[in-house]
Write a protein that binds this DNA or RNA. Structure first.
Lengths: 192, 192, 192, 192
DNA sequence: GATGAATGAGTTTTCATTCAT
DNA sequence: TATGAATGAAAACTCATTCAT
């Protein structure tokens, strides 16, 4: 990737995450990057496609980080879940643009993003399902019924941690009590 | 409230919840309501203040509904928590505009909304803290340490249910397995 | 005149003189007067006609004040001119709306004002011509050629004192040196 | 300066001088120039800044013209004053936008113009003070007291010639008698 | 007389996109 | 590749005026 494209992409990422998709203008991105607006369109065709690339790069990073956790096959599944949750929160705290894609208006108007997000959602669900399965097999967890549903529930719960109220300003205060919450959850799914 | 104002407010609520704050134009609201754009500004001074009133009316409704749950003092606290969570999800499913206020750009730009939202957050935290307290006193719950922290955690979890991914389209599918999730949580905080 | 009309007129005068015709809205006048906007239209049909009445009341006051000066037939004509100039400046300092009517855009668009202003201009020219005539007859002034032209020139000069730069803020400082200027002028037209 | 910018600026100047700042819309300027409204904003950010540039260009021209007069050091100071006054009137007759800046509302609302105008005022005062000083030294003029005050008074007088009543339509008629007026003034300040 | 809700045409401004260089 | 001038559609907002009560 050319230095100009690189610069534009990283500037776009920062600006989008600060003001959101709609409140960010192409002009502002170009100015912040000290590049011409035309260059933005040369490298990324449209605002939407630029945003898509920004989100993609965030998700790529998120996947990489989470994969490191999942690969640790030997650890107690409860411990893996715990590590996964903490890592996810950490990365999410800086994956603000991905979060924005969860807004309703993105669903109404931009099919060009659904594929990226759905793929990520499915990937995550798959990974967690696998861990839960391992935990059940190793008799560390007690999950009657469909395990996929538990995975979905965990994801829903984790998405709660993405809310700005939490991420903005309160992150530091709450992270310290995070173990408590995880304790409740793991106790809730543990074999007695 | 005059019929015109009423009509404008309800139309605004619907339109905002469909397209989000930024993708909704004042023109569109006025046209949908078959009223003049000037009337919008006569009754609500600005787009932001109009949105504020929309959110306020949603929160007012949410509070009323939740208050009914909280007032049932005799029930088992786990049962109240369960009823609370379900009711909250139901109402949230139609309080789409309030959800939008949780977006980062609203935090950056609009102080005019923070007061409303913070007040709601505090109110909810207070209510849940009280229920948890009651549960501990009645020896139904096991919550070592600061109870307020558990209340906050529960709220964070509930906010997870507000994510559009869940609310849009998947609500019906997931609500049926919701009891499972609540089961995990209540098991997690129950006295053995 | 009813108290409501009176109140609206005086408020309109103040507001127009502060912000000018275009920057003043009917809404602002009504609000400042703590009256309904409809009342403005009940008493004065349109913004233009309201402004006309404001200007008229200023000119009426100006005429009354200047007439007092002109009627002193016995004094030295140079003294009358001096007194006239000072009084005119004093009154003009508070006749800001009349001044605005001298702007080009008022000439282009509002015939409804020309009559009022032309009448005032002619009245003033007439008065000054008469004084100059008296001065020439009493051999106090030396004005070769057409006396009306001198009257017009004096008026042009006096209009110079109407410029905001002078009226705004510098009025107090310059008024103290005003006698100097009048000295030059009267020396310029005096018989040696 | 690009041809488009040039065209927009000159069109803006003409339109503003015809209808005044408030009665001129950006739309009208763009249409008259047969350019897109967006181009107006590309080159001049806002209506106020566009107007500022229009005024600036007028004042630049005024300064250039007057400087030519001032530089004639050998002539009789009374003759220079006379030439200065006539030239100023001529240029002012086409510097209609600068005149508008003297309106009260411009002082209340737009600090963005004060610097330009104050600078011009001070420049003019300085030039005239210098001429008067030369005249006193050469014993052509009789100016007891502070000479700066005379300079200010002359400027006030000259501003009187800026009034639209004079400039609009009556310019031609009055200019022919202008010498008379200047005669009064120069006689008033001449050494006998 | 007095009110204030309702209107709609008009205003300034923003901004994604195109294109000649 | 990279630029920045130019565009025009659309946005938020203003405001004189009307009118039923």
């Amino acid at each position: 990737m050319s230095p100009t494209k690189q610069k534009l992409l990283s500037t776009a990422s920062k600006t989008f995450s600060k003001y959101g998709f709609y409140k960010t203008s192409m002009d502002e991105i170009a100015k912040s990057a000290r590049k011409a607006k035309g260059s933005l369109y040369y490298h990324f065709n449209s605002k939407e496609l630029l945003f898509r690339e920004v989100v993609l790069s965030e998700l790529t990073f998120l996947k990489e980080e989470l994969t490191l956790i999942f690969e640790n096959h030997d650890a107690d599944s409860r411990e893996i879940i715990r590590a996964y949750m903490i890592k996810r929160m950490e990365v999410m705290n800086i994956s603000i643009n991905y979060q924005e894609t969860l807004r309703p208006e993105f669903y109404e108007f931009y099919e060009f993003l659904n594929d990226v997000i759905l793929e990520m959602d499915q990937w995550e669900k798959q990974q967690i399902t696998e861990i839960l399965n391992r935990g059940v097999v190793k008799e560390e967890l007690d999950l009657p019924g469909n395990i996929e549903v538990y995975a979905e529930m965990l994801l829903i719960f984790l998405k709660g941690l993405e809310t700005p109220l939490f991420l903005k300003g309160q992150y530091e205060r709450l992270i310290s009590n995070f173990d408590n919450l995880i304790g409740i959850l793991t106790k809730g799914i543990s074999k007695v």
